[in-house]
Design a protein around this nucleic acid. Structure first.
Lengths: 213, 213, 213, 213
DNA sequence: TATGAATGAGGTTTCATTCAT
DNA sequence: GATGAATGAAACCTCATTCAT
């Protein structure tokens, strides 16, 4: 842990290797042998350091989440107007989803878990998503104004979130099943800009409708 | 179901059983033994009738797709204006995604494949999606008008499609990781209405922007 | 199953092999590999035919019990007086315990289970013992006469049974830990005679005591 | 326990913990990790202090035997008549077998060893039992009188000892496989009294038979 | 046309022991 | 005097596939 000679521990190497492989192949399709081989560790080391494959997986979920929060924080001043805030929230979420700079990717693991839940994940994802969603609801309400019904706010949140999280399908899945991707994922800011504008138009549409009544 | 003695063949029973189980648990997590047990068939019957687990899976992909097309056709007159068409396209897509009346569900299988591609699926999904996407592009272009750039149309298509397909996670995935679903999935028409309105507002926003130039 | 060419099935061979090895080494110390080797079967065959090691073990418990009942039935006429009956009950019990003619030995498995219970055995032994004990209680009551208290009858049953079942320690255990065995186990009738006489003397002692009151 | 600071050494803690666990679960079913956890010691400490799991087990055998001898000595005056002596011998044996005040229990370990011998135990039990048995033979001979044949004395010893040692199955084994225990183990004196009386009746029976000749 | 038996490969996990510190 | 890390062997179990009938 000293800043010099920072030799990675076996435990850390296992964590990073398995983050990468779980992200790529999912929990069930990943074998401990594969992880250990990539980490250059003995096949029994996973059970030594994490007690079970499932516990390692949970550690990976927490680790990749922490990584994405740390590497792509939400950069905005709280005094800014909520529409600008929305842009930054969407941007940082897209960055987290699309990043290749991290060891593993939490949101791709979430996508896998949504498509095929794993007992091993316990409530980790549920808890994180729950917190995130509440904050998004608040922001949308701030943009919409006070008289938005709970149902409407929920629908607006859904429309925005779904546009973002739909990108969390992993690369292999995208290139495998989609001939040409409709978005230019190298231009993250551009995509964030589009989703923001498209969605703000939707929100304003409902607000105008509300005002006319 | 007909008054004739229409006894289901073993092959058909295997197809239906595996469609249900694959949809629920995915390709890798489903065992041939499980399928045969549900179908009341011999353990060797899958290999006998379909040659391999992978071939059975491909048959299921084709079968569930055909089912969804047959049960939920797009009901609209082609003369109607394109915005009305969009609603009907979205509605029938949502019906296909959310239906519980079918044996298995193609779109839920697609969701799994996007999150975790399977060698077994070969190009089946890619080909189907490709055709669907082209038709959606055309419709959006019709709504937007002729001077939409390819890039813009692609983005608009993405925004609409993502709101629909995000629902293709199966029930287990949704209830496992999301505390309360933001949409009322029993009210399919309502959801389709919302996605249509929200998206049309987005499209118009871009068109107005375009017109101001 | 025809009386000719009665080739033993793999399942039967597994059952017999594991009966022998479980009797010798106990459940935990026996490996599936060992059983399969002795049976000349593939290592996966146990799981194919019995679903698990534990289920095989339960099958062995039932099998060895059935064997001992079949090979050493209780030979006595019911009209005989109860003291003669007691001798025959003890004799057949000792024969069952000491026999080397059977594949495996239920009572040696029971001894192991008493010393070190196994989750795998479920309630099989408990149920068998319970029935046996009731019948022994009845017999002792018949010998003692009607005014034996429940507590006294229980103690007498215990004294007799313990002398018999103490022999269910397996041969390896006996020769390993006892220099010279106090009983000549080749003379089963002699041992049965001794235990009967010794115990009848004990029963009469209590009855006389009772009578003097 | 002394007023001095008598901190238990790691070695002693390992000894006591393993005595308890070995008594409960047996040698094979007990893992070093479990022992170390209970002792609050390092996973390598068993091998450090005792060289191997087997050597620890032998230490436990000696330790639990010494404990039982120390805590439950045979309280009788040697001048008393041999029948009274017998009662005291049986009583102290039962106390040793049934005691819960000790760390571990030698006789329960013996019961396990008889049912399923362990290479690890070497000759420790054999030597101890051999000495015990000789002394019991002497006592029975003293009660019976001089003209008892070796064979008869051996049988009488067996009948008495078996009634005592049959109780050495641990609680788990008893309650697991026997619905209701025929003896009230809280009344150790009562049980000792019963076994003594029952057995003395047996001895006298043979002596009378002998006298009639 | 169909099936019960069998199998080899590969998965996770446990565990006593060793080793460097 | 003691320990955390590491490891190789072996255990049980699952499973898609093959084969003889």
């Amino acid at each position: 842990m000293s800043s010099l000679q920072q030799k990675k521990t076996t435990k850390q190497k296992l964590l990073e290797s398995s983050a990468v492989i779980f992200t790529e192949k999912g929990f069930a399709n990943t074998s401990i042998a594969e992880i250990c081989e990539m980490a250059g560790a003995n096949i029994a080391s996973v059970n030594y350091h994490f007690r079970s494959k499932g516990a390692l997986y949970r550690a990976v979920l927490r680790y990749t989440f922490a990584q994405s929060e740390e590497l792509y924080p939400q950069n905005f001043e709280h005094k800014e107007n909520p529409e600008v805030k929305l842009y930054h929230v969407i941007l940082s979420l897209l960055q987290r989803i699309l990043s290749r700079d991290m060891k593993g990717n939490f949101y791709k693991l979430v996508a896998k878990e949504m498509a095929e839940p794993t007992a091993a994940s316990e409530n980790i994802i549920r808890d994180i998503i729950s917190r995130k969603k509440e904050r998004m609801d608040e922001l949308i309400r701030e943009i919409y104004g006070k008289n938005g019904s709970r149902k409407l706010i929920a629908r607006l949140t859904y429309s925005i979130i779904s546009q973002c999280l739909f990108l969390s399908y992993n690369e292999k899945g995208r290139t495998r099943h989609i001939k040409e991707l409709p978005l230019d994922l190298d231009d993250v800011e551009g995509v964030a800009r589009h989703i923001t504008d498209f969605s703000l138009a939707g929100i304003r549409y409902y607000r105008n409708l509300d005002g006319e009544k």
